[in-house]
Amino acid sequence: MSLDISIEHVGDTATISVKGDVTIQTSSVLRKELKPLFSSDETCIHVKLDGVEFMDSSGIAVLVEGLQWSKATGGKFTLSGLTPTVKDVFELAKLDTIFDIEG
């Protein structure tokens, strides 16, 4: 099982697109890609999740690190493209009130 990740840099925004299941086996790949963005000059980090059908707590924990970065630096950390299954879990666990979710 693999995760397909691409990053686009436009102005002060980094957009990271994720495809595949984000699980305990693959979340380290997402963390590895996100972490350098936390120490870059970019002030907005946008995570597109329209290619993610399954995400467990290890994947959500990586996204929480984005919240930590946002709180520490004042940067903007947003999510978009939540598929119905991922959106359902976010709503059920009230995580939709924690993250800035677009669309």
């Binding site: 467990d56 707590s57 959500i60 924990a61 990586v62 929480v64 690190e65 919240l67 930590q68 709180k71 879990v89 666990a93 995580l95 009130t97 924690i98």
Partner: peptide, 14 residues
């Protein structure tokens, strides 16, 4: 979580 974002304990919460 919003004020104190911590990554632990999410699994049990889910």
């Amino acid at each position: 979580l919003k004020e104190h974002p911590v990554a632990g304990g999410l699994g049990m919460h889910l």
